[in-house]
Measured scan of single mutants.
Amino acid sequence: NQASVVANQLIPINVALTLVMMRSEVVTPVGIPAEDIPRLVSMQVNRAVPLGTTLMPDMVKGYA
């Protein structure tokens, strides 16, 4: 099963993503693939993302 990107903490809106904010985990439904974590660094989410939430492509500005 493919690992997805999961919030490692509350990720506020309009804050640049850092490695420490994200972890990889096998979850259902599948979200952004874990291998895209380096690409996500410095991008921003378009809504607050609670701890443990799977990041979906539509949550990250400029990802999709």
Rank of each mutant, 00 (worst) to 15 (best):
I11W: 02
L40M: 07
L19E: 13
I11M: 05
E25H: 08
Q2N: 11
Y63D: 03
A7D: 01
G31C: 03
P50C: 06
S4K: 01
N14P: 00
R47Q: 14
A48Y: 11
D58G: 10
M59N: 06
R23V: 07
A34T: 06
V26W: 12
I32V: 08
S4G: 04
A48V: 14
E35I: 12
L19R: 15
N46H: 08
R47E: 09
N8L: 06
K61L: 14
I13F: 11
G31I: 01
I37A: 09
T54Y: 03
P29V: 06
R39H: 13
V60M: 05
S42N: 12
L10Y: 11
G52Q: 04
N46K: 12
Q2Y: 13
A64I: 13
I13W: 08
P33R: 09
V41I: 11
A34S: 15
P33F: 10
P33E: 04
G62K: 09
A3Q: 11
G52M: 04
T54I: 09
T53M: 15
V27Y: 03
V5R: 00
V30Q: 15
V49C: 05
V41K: 06
I37Q: 04
I32Y: 01
R47D: 06
A3I: 09
V49I: 12
N1L: 15
V6S: 02
N14M: 07
L51C: 06
L51N: 12
L10H: 14
S4R: 01
D36N: 13
L10G: 14
P50N: 08
Y63W: 13
V26G: 04
T18R: 15
K61N: 14
N14I: 03
Q2P: 13
R23Q: 05
E35H: 12
G31P: 00
D58C: 06
N46W: 09
N14R: 07
A7H: 01
L40K: 00
A3T: 08
E25S: 10
M43V: 04
P12M: 07
P57L: 04
M21G: 00
V27I: 06
M43C: 05
A64V: 15
G52Y: 04
Q9F: 08
R39A: 12
S4T: 04
R47G: 07
D58T: 08
P38I: 09
S24R: 14
M22P: 00
Q44E: 14
T28G: 07
V6L: 07
N46S: 14
A7E: 02
V20G: 14
A16Q: 11
K61S: 14
A7V: 07
L55N: 00
T28N: 13
V49F: 03
N46A: 15
P12G: 08
M22R: 00
I37N: 00
D36F: 11
T53Q: 14
P50G: 07
P12H: 09
Y63S: 04
V60S: 02
V27R: 15
Q44C: 05
E25G: 12
L40W: 03
T53E: 09
Q2W: 10
V41C: 05
L40F: 01
V45K: 00
V5K: 01
L17A: 00
L40D: 03
P57W: 11
M56V: 08
V30C: 05
N46L: 11
Y63G: 04
A64R: 04
V6F: 02
I37G: 04
M43I: 04
P38D: 10
I11T: 00
V15W: 12
N8E: 07
A48S: 15
E35W: 13
S42K: 12
A3W: 11
Y63M: 06
S24C: 07
T28W: 12
V45N: 00
M56N: 05
P57Y: 07
A34G: 09
R47L: 08
Q9C: 07
D58W: 13
M21I: 03
Q44F: 12
V20I: 12
T54K: 04
L10E: 13
R23N: 08
M43Y: 10
N1D: 11
I37C: 04
V20S: 15
T53A: 15
S24L: 05
V49M: 04
I11H: 00
I37D: 00
V41W: 03
M22N: 00
T54H: 02
G52P: 01
M43T: 04
I32C: 04
V41P: 02
T28L: 15
L19V: 14
A34R: 05
M56S: 06
E35K: 15
L40G: 01
M56T: 13
I37P: 01
A64F: 08
P57E: 06
E25Q: 13
R39P: 02
L17C: 02
V49W: 03
P38C: 07
L40P: 00
R47V: 12
L10A: 11
V45D: 00
A16M: 13
V15I: 15
P50W: 04
L10W: 13
A48G: 07
A34I: 06
S24F: 06
G52W: 04
L51E: 14
N8K: 10
V6P: 01
A7M: 04
P57K: 09
A16V: 08
I32T: 03
A64S: 13
V60G: 01
P33W: 07
V6C: 04
M43R: 08
A34H: 07
S24W: 06
V30R: 15
A3S: 11
E35G: 14
E25R: 09
S42F: 10
V27S: 05
M59E: 02
M59L: 05
M59P: 01
Q2S: 11
P57V: 06
I32L: 05
M21R: 02
S42P: 00
E35A: 13
V49G: 01
T18A: 09
A16D: 13
T53D: 12
V5T: 06
M21N: 07
V49T: 05
P29H: 06
M59I: 05
E25K: 13
S4F: 02
A3N: 07
Q44V: 15
L51Y: 14
V49P: 02
L10S: 12
V41S: 03
V49Q: 02
G52K: 03
V6Y: 02
N1Y: 14
T18D: 07
G31M: 02
P33M: 06
G31Y: 02
A3M: 15
L17Y: 01
M59F: 13
Q44R: 13
A7W: 03
M43N: 05
G31L: 02
V26Y: 12
V45R: 00
G62H: 12
P33N: 08
Q2M: 12
M22T: 00
V15K: 12
V45T: 10
Q2R: 14
V27Q: 04
S42E: 10
R23I: 06
V45H: 00
G62M: 07
Q44A: 09
E25N: 08
V5I: 10
E25M: 12
M22C: 03
M22L: 10
L55A: 01
T53G: 11
G31A: 03
M43E: 05
L40V: 05
M56H: 08
